[in-house]
Amino acid sequence: MDNFVRTLYQERASLPSTVGVLLIESAEQLLTTTDTFDSVLLIISTDKEPELLVKHYSYEGTKLALYSIYENKLREWLMAGSNRKIYDWLLNGKILFDRNDSLQQLIQDLNDFPFHERKLRIGLEFSKLIRRYADGKKLYEQKHYFDAYNHVIHSLHHLARLSLIEKGFHPEVTVWNQVKNLEPEIYKMYNELINSNEAIDKRLELLFLASEFYLHMRTDLGSSHIIEVLSRKSMWSIQEIIEEKELKLYSVDICVLLEYLVDKGYLDIILEESKGKSIYHRYYTTKNF
């Protein structure tokens, strides 16, 4: 197996576009982390085309997955927190090749988890939390309890991830194992939701009450990134917000987050008359502008 892996990565390490190569072995990680493969070879490249190349190999009864990823795409995943396995791969993988210590520096940055990166990650998790909470509560009010339950489970996952990021930790694949030790109250909420003998509507009712408290406690922190960006000018149309480079990662959750912040008094609405009679354009502005 070692010779096979060496053959695969040495060919790519000779390319000037290759930044680094990591080996992740399932014997040392959860099998879910490697998608049931025995090993994963992660190659980071400055080649933009393709952004992600995946190959699967078999060798002497073992399975190996090769991922070649564009460096900027990898950083986008890390910033958005959209691929949790990548954190495990980078933090626990074995470095096979590292041009100019670039890979080592990337891993060091992950370990340091700078505050400006945490601020964005917290904002993204908070927006997802708000979206799931709002959708779940609406479904609960309409007595669609099983659908509401699904959204609430997801909202708790986002709350758990947010609380870990807040403390300077990257959420891992086994996020609830982390939360159990670092945020026992949130773990208790999750445990009671899934294991309680109460009727599902009663469980949801209690959960929504508890969630209101956690949302209130984290709104300042969760909204700090978007408020900081919106404070840079007097007012924003929704199109300007969607197109703003620093806010693009919020994606489909941005509208629900904005309305939540308006409702809670963090943002104000400015109405400007349009060409149509009694029709107004709606703009968002911060309290501190």
Rank of each mutant, 00 (worst) to 15 (best):
V179A: 01
S14W: 02
L209Y: 06
G61H: 02
R161K: 12
H170D: 15
S224W: 02
I153P: 03
K180L: 06
E60R: 13
Y140G: 05
Q108K: 12
S155Y: 03
W89H: 11
Y67D: 10
L8V: 05
Y70A: 05
W77G: 09
R84W: 05
L159I: 07
Y284I: 13
L204G: 00
F146P: 08
S102G: 08
P50N: 15
E28P: 00
H56D: 14
V54P: 12
R161P: 01
E212F: 10
I153E: 15
H157M: 10
E60N: 13
I241C: 00
E259Q: 09
K119A: 00
Y250N: 14
Y87M: 09
H154T: 13
E205T: 08
Y187Q: 07
K94S: 15
E183L: 12
T34V: 11
I269H: 03
L78G: 02
R282I: 09
L91V: 05
Y187T: 10
I107M: 02
I44H: 04
V256N: 06
K94L: 14
T285P: 00
I95P: 01
I194Y: 03
V173D: 13
Y280D: 12
K233Y: 06
Y187M: 08
N100F: 12
A13I: 04
L129G: 11
E28V: 01
D109H: 00
Y266Q: 04
Q29Y: 07
K128S: 04
K73V: 09
I130Q: 05
K167C: 12
M235W: 06
I227R: 10
F97T: 03
L15I: 07
V179L: 01
F169H: 11
R218Y: 11
L42I: 05
L110N: 12
T285Y: 03
C255D: 11
N83H: 08
E272L: 11
I254N: 01
A134G: 05
S211T: 10
S26G: 13
E60K: 13
V40K: 06
Y214I: 14
Y190A: 15
W176D: 14
S274V: 02
L74H: 03
H216C: 15
F169Q: 08
Y187D: 14
I200K: 01
D263C: 03
A134E: 04
G265Q: 07
K94T: 10
F208M: 08
N111F: 04
T32S: 12
E183D: 07
L129Q: 11
R12A: 08
S231W: 04
T33Q: 10
E125M: 09
E25L: 01
I242G: 00
L221D: 13
G61M: 09
H116Q: 01
R12D: 04
M79E: 07
N177C: 09
L52E: 14
R132K: 14
Q239D: 01
G81P: 07
I186D: 04
V152G: 10
I227C: 09
N195K: 07
